[in-house]
Design a protein around this nucleic acid. Structure first.
Lengths: 270, 270
DNA sequence: TCTTGACTCTCCACCCACTGGAGGGTGTAT
DNA sequence: ATACACCCTCCAGTGGGTGGAGAGTCAAGA
């Protein structure tokens, strides 16, 4: 019979932790003095404690461990838990690697530029959404505005209000100055009958969207694009679909230097 | 100006999180209605939010991010942080890999044996300690008791009480039935002058000690040894020093079936 | 103008696996 | 008798949010 401190020295498990496990019922002291409350442990409890530590080390939670140890541990269930944990760990390793890539990219960037750029790239999940849209091949980028001139009356006509900022989707697989294949879209709550060239359709969700914010007039977009592409390449991603521009704040009449545009590329890990 | 819900939809950051960041001062709403308390955000805040998300994604804490964003971000300090993070991530990946190895070993073991053995192996850190010890080459394993017969009188003579259970350290690099090179040791608080063959010395700390508990008489130890060696090999470790046996509960007069022995091997990752 | 329903506010509790500390009792050696 | 190490319980805090209660606000349709 050991007092808690001795047992702690024996196992290298902190006293506080032993008390905590006692409280949880995960590993009760073998005896508790009725008068002083002192806990006493026996050497025979070492295997159980070692099991706890080993399972914890695999990444299981204390609740799971308690279940396994006290539930007579059906090997079926244990195998299931471990397989799940295995998949989880593999996933985590992938994420960790991606994170490491990003950190290394940052370091290189700082070394080259002496500071961190203020325009960040983030990977996010974009859910599916219903949009009203027109797709066309237009002469130049700046003609995309015309498509919205088609789109807006359509919405007004059907008394549908936008459910978010307008966006454009670019289908060209290579960069082109002229004859740009673009879809102008506006998110809506519910679909309406097609009218003219306008149709409502479902935009698919994108699991991994590399996104960055562009501030100011559209003329500066090329710089933002090249930074974004550089990021994607350097961080071990690959473009996996048509890119989007979300016109967060681009009122036609207002000062272009106050424009806010989000540039998005669907990507996948190489 | 967007209400919090709109801004949330725009950024895919939950409302609760935006409020939390506001509270932390990490990203304040650009305006708060004096009467209703409603928060309002502007599109111009998107870059800052993106920076927050990107830095969070690198694994920095919100406190660190706040410091960077508001402290004018000296690139020196940022580089330091990132280098630290890089090392941390690399370390984590190694640990993750070790964990994954262990999980896979478990799965194989379950598949082979249909259940999980009840004797676990754990890796732990063992601190340095001062011991009184005798080292000798003895005819067979069972003669190790004699060395304690030398050790105990020495302790009694100097009025030193043990600071932990006795242990033995085996220096043979290969298994031998006879002529075993062993050091019998007992932890003590402070050193005392050498007497006869007994000396006090400092046992070095061991960063990674693979340890398991053996229950019952010493005759069964070979089985425990072979399981432990199997574990070490299968989990990508290598023995890096002499192994120890800690006699947690092995009173000479008592029933050997109640003995509790800890078997330890210093290891390092391959 | 009223109602409805979506939206927003604050405040509190909870998650995990501990950790630290206050305040007080216990055990043992000198 | 007195140190001093050790033990107890209880409470609060960690990080980065999440969930819910209860109450107030806004905008569109009737």
């Amino acid at each position: 019979m050991f007092k808690i401190g001795e047992f702690s020295r024996l196992t290298h498990v902190p006293v506080k932790t032993l008390r905590y496990y006692d409280e949880l019922g995960l590993m009760k002291a073998v005896a508790v003095d009725r008068f002083t409350g002192y806990r006493y442990y026996s050497a025979g409890q070492l295997p159980r404690l070692n099991r706890i530590l080993a399972l914890k080390d695999l990444g299981l939670s204390l609740a799971q461990i308690a279940q396994l140890l006290d539930g007579g541990l059906p090997p079926e269930q244990l195998r299931g838990m471990l397989r799940l944990k295995q998949a989880e760990l593999q996933q985590q390793m992938l994420e960790e690697q991606a994170r490491l890539d990003r950190v290394e990219w940052r370091l290189r960037q700082i070394e080259q530029e002496g500071a961190m750029s203020t325009q960040e790239v983030v990977i996010k999940k974009v859910p599916a959404m219903t949009v009203a849209s027109v797709r066309d091949v237009i002469p130049t980028y700046s003609d995309v505005g015309r498509l919205y001139d088609e789109l807006m009356p359509y919405l007004g006509q059907h008394r549908i209000r936008p459910a978010g900022p307008p966006l454009a989707i670019y289908y060209d697989t290579e960069y082109r100055e002229r004859d740009v294949d673009v879809e102008a879209a506006i998110p809506v709550m519910e679909s309406a009958p097609a009218g003219g060239r306008v149709a409502t359709r479902q935009l698919p969700a994108v699991e991994q969207m590399a996104s960055t914010i562009h501030l100011g007039p559209f003329e500066g977009l090329t710089g933002t694009y090249s930074r974004l592409m550089g990021w994607i390449e350097a961080n071990g991603y690959r473009i996996s679909g048509p890119n989007r521009e979300v016109y967060v704040q681009c009122e036609p009449g207002s000062d272009p230097s106050t424009y806010v545009t989000e540039v998005q590329f669907p990507v996948e890990r190489v």
